[in-house]
Design a protein around this nucleic acid. Structure first.
Lengths: 113, 113
DNA sequence: TTGCAATTTAGCTAAACATCGAAATATGGT
DNA sequence: ACCATATTTCGATGTTTAGCTAAATTGCAA
């Protein structure tokens, strides 16, 4: 958990995640968005990999990075939960709205734990 | 934003927040929960204060710290939003459900740095 | 094989951070 | 005024982090 928060504590790394949110991207392509050297970016990638926030797929000479959104979600949600911050995923919220719109259907999908 | 994530990247500081979630507490009382020196804890408090996650109230010789939950919520939500992770506070979820029942546009709150 | 392109590793510096014990500051009681 | 208590500041030390340049690695293609 600390590794995840440490990873996203850096603005460059947050931006990387943000870029990867839109589509998987090669290391070089990502590098082009930042004014720092490639080795430095490679170190940032390593931190994100260490935190299990991205995964790498080697294709020939280039490496494609892809966001692991679920890990990020879990960390944020997990922390929020401990803190008692009322938070829910979009999926959960959708379910809530759905059941609110059709109140006759008593979806007893136990989400109160 | 970085300051908030940097603050919560440390397990000791996360635990402090967790403790303060239950009730405001004096610095000394908080210190008693951790196996580190008081100066060290004082430094942690400073980091949390710097991130605007807690606020201090001096009463006589003791200092009572109190959690600023809203700041934490905003940081988590703000980041999640940028990343497109669908999470929302319980309050927002309630609003969503309400507006879903009578589809009227909802005013959005200002976003800042 | 030779050479090129993409990426990482190695080796370094400077700045930031965590931690401690000791000293300083502030407050309330006697 | 003096003392005890609560908390922070100070100074020192070891560790981590972000950044750089230069060199090594890997895969492809001519």
């Amino acid at each position: 958990m600390s590794t995840v928060f440490k990873a996203i504590a850096d603005p460059t790394r947050r931006k990387v995640l943000e870029l990867l949110r839109q589509k998987p991207m090669s290391a070089g392509e990502l590098c082009d968005h930042f004014p720092v050297s490639r080795p430095t970016m490679s170190a940032h990638f390593a931190v994100l990999r260490e935190a299990d926030l991205i995964e790498a797929q080697k294709i020939g000479t280039t490496i494609i990075y892809q966001l692991k959104l679920s890990v990020l979600e879990e960390a944020l949600l997990g922390f929020a939960q401990v803190l008692g911050i009322g938070i829910e995923t979009a999926k959960q919220a959708k379910d809530e709205r759905a059941s609110s719109l059709s109140p006759r259907k008593k979806a007893s999908k136990g989400r109160s734990k």
